[in-house]
Structure formats: C-alpha cells, structure tokens
Write a protein that binds this DNA or RNA. Sequence first.
DNA 1: CTTGACACCTAGCATTCCTATGCCTAGGAT
DNA 2: ATCCTAGGCATAGGAATGCTAGGTGTCAAG
Lengths: 116, 116
Amino acid sequence: MRSETLKGHLDALILSVVSIGPLHGYAIIEQLRLRSGGAMTLPEGTVYPALHRLEAAGLLSSYWSQTAGRRRRVYELTRRGERELGTRRAEWREFAHAVEAVLSPAEPSGPTAVPA
Amino acid sequence: MRSETLKGHLDALILSVVSIGPLHGYAIIEQLRLRSGGAMTLPEGTVYPALHRLEAAGLLSSYWSQTAGRRRRVYELTRRGERELGTRRAEWREFAHAVEAVLSPAEPSGPTAVPA
DNA sequence: CTTGACACCTAGCATTCCTATGCCTAGGAT
DNA sequence: ATCCTAGGCATAGGAATGCTAGGTGTCAAG
C-alpha cells in the first residue's frame, strides 16, 4: 500500500482500535494489521509519534504498566477522543462516498449533469 | 473536508475525471466538485501543481488551446496514465476495504481472532 | 469602472508518514 | 556463553503532498 495513501486517516484508525479497550503501542500495531487483514502493517516510526500526537491533542490518555519485566505505555480513549472518533468515522464515510463517486467510470458530464 | 484527508488520493481523482475526455484545469476542478456532490471543492493551488506533477510523471499530456481570447491548458491521459488509473482504482478499493474493516465497531480481538 | 467569473501560475508553509537508528528485556537456539 | 528473534519504546531527519496567499490577465455585466 502506497505510503501516502494512509495520510490523514491514521488517527481515526488508531482511535478506533483503542476504542475497543486499552492497548499499548505494540498491540495497536498488531491490531491494525489483524483487523485490516494484513493490509496495514505499519512501522513503529509511524505509530508511536501518532500516539504522542493524539495524547497531546487530548484524544488519548496513557499510563505505564509493568508486565513480566516489560514496560508498556497503555493508551485509552478520553471523552474527547470518543467524540472525535465519531466525527472521524462520519468524515470517512463522506470522503469514501465522494471518492467512489469520482472514481467510478461514468459518461461525460456537462454543466447540466446535475439536475436542479 | 479535512485537508489531510485527501492526501495521496488526488492523483487518482484527477486521472479519473480526465479519463472521460480531455479537460483543462479549471474544468477539472469543476468536475471534481460536481461529481463529488460538492464535497470536493479544491483550491487552484492544489490542482494546478498536481497537474504539473502528473504531466512530469508522464501520466498526462497537455497542449494550449485558445477559446474566445482565453488560453487554456488542456490535459489528456497518456497510455501510462490509463494504466496508472487502473492501478490506483484497485489500490483505492483495497485501502477503502481495509479502513472499513478497522473502523467498523467490533468485539475485542485476541491473537486467536484470525482463524487459520 | 468595478465586480465577478474564467483561467493560469508559484513560493512557502504545515502536516504527515516513513526510514533509520538507538536503547532495553526475555527466551530460545547454537 | 553468545546470538538471534520477538517484544517494547523512542527520536531525528527526509520526502511528499496539499493549502494559503499572492500574482497575472481576459471578458461580460452592472
């Protein structure tokens, strides 16, 4: 998948997987891969900065957890994050429909192509 | 529509409208707006550089036309542009499905969530 | 003669994602 | 003992893209 393809949609994807339950960064990467059927195998250098960005924006909160000698930073949605997720999902749908409309082959469309 | 949303998909959209028939820049902007139902009202500063980029990449070719004292640069798809459009449409579909899969609410998914 | 639609162009900015690299632990293989 | 792999986090720097904001010019309507 071309790397620019993802741009602007990563935040929604992360918020969505975290909305299911608190997750740490590495697990988020794993979930994105699993749920996308392998299509989204994101490098850490993409996801970690995004998490920091989302936390700075107040959409995620985090805490450290210690498990078997391994430290993990666990993220969960804030109230604002939940609301934002709703907005983003709606925006995605709108965007996807718009792209679909433009991308699907169609007959030439003059100025009169959109009926009043 | 959030501006980052479009990133990485503009080329496909432009190729798609031009594939219907030769169009000049301004008309391309108009077609994108019409076909997207108004969702994509792109500023010229977005589209013109993109057209130059696509021409430089060999996906579009152009020529000047004079109509009623108005000069227009008309673009049409090259062979490579047609092929590229096909690729991009396929990529869009793959991407859209992947996002849909991640974005749609689902039950918690453990390591066993993907059956062999 | 001013406004608005038509039509093109570019510089510079902001944002985003990726590559590359570094650091650390645990557990199995050699 | 040593190495490798998986797990786990982090950052710097580069590349790409779209937008803002500005500029040029024609033509028709008021």
